[in-house]
Simulated assay, not measured.
Amino acid sequence: MDDSVTENPAAHRFEMAVGDSIAAAYYRLEDGKVVLIHTEVPQQLSGQGIGSKLAEGAFRLIRESGRQAVVRCSFMANWVSRHPEVNDLVVG
């Protein structure tokens, strides 16, 4: 399994290919901030930690790009609450 996360700006999402499926964290940009609005993991992949790997990769890319995140997605909010190492990236 290739668990590398990439950003697809045209689709406004961070994505991770898992076999023939794509897990994605959708966002919109507001004032230069990445507003995380929805996370989707294909049903057949649920319970395998895919969402957590996606979140970890998305926050790594946000950090590398020098941006900050606004968390409006309940999955991402839950993930952030368990990963204080990204607190410096989260605003609003």
Rank of each mutant, 00 (worst) to 15 (best):
55 A>C: 14
13 R>Q: 15
9 P>C: 12
19 G>P: 08
59 F>N: 04
82 R>M: 14
89 L>F: 06
79 W>C: 00
81 S>H: 08
67 R>F: 09
25 A>T: 08
17 A>F: 14
39 T>D: 08
36 L>S: 08
6 T>Q: 15
90 V>P: 06
39 T>S: 07
83 H>V: 01
41 V>I: 07
26 Y>Q: 10
65 S>N: 05
3 D>V: 14
85 E>D: 10
5 V>H: 13
54 L>H: 04
32 G>V: 09
85 E>C: 02
76 M>S: 10
19 G>F: 03
35 V>Q: 12
17 A>I: 13
71 V>D: 08
65 S>C: 07
30 E>C: 02
31 D>A: 14
22 I>L: 11
91 V>S: 01
15 E>D: 11
40 E>H: 09
41 V>T: 08
10 A>Q: 14
24 A>E: 10
33 K>G: 02
10 A>G: 09
46 S>N: 15
78 N>C: 02
36 L>T: 07
9 P>L: 11
55 A>R: 01
24 A>N: 07
61 L>E: 00
59 F>M: 04
43 Q>Y: 13
76 M>A: 10
92 G>E: 15
79 W>T: 06
12 H>W: 12
13 R>S: 09
21 S>K: 15
41 V>F: 04
4 S>W: 11
17 A>E: 13
23 A>H: 04
62 I>N: 01
77 A>R: 14
24 A>V: 08
88 D>M: 06
50 I>Y: 05
1 M>A: 13
18 V>M: 11
58 A>L: 10
69 A>W: 02
81 S>M: 13
36 L>A: 15
17 A>H: 15
21 S>A: 14
49 G>C: 01
54 L>V: 03
67 R>T: 06
38 H>K: 07
14 F>E: 05
91 V>M: 00
56 E>I: 02
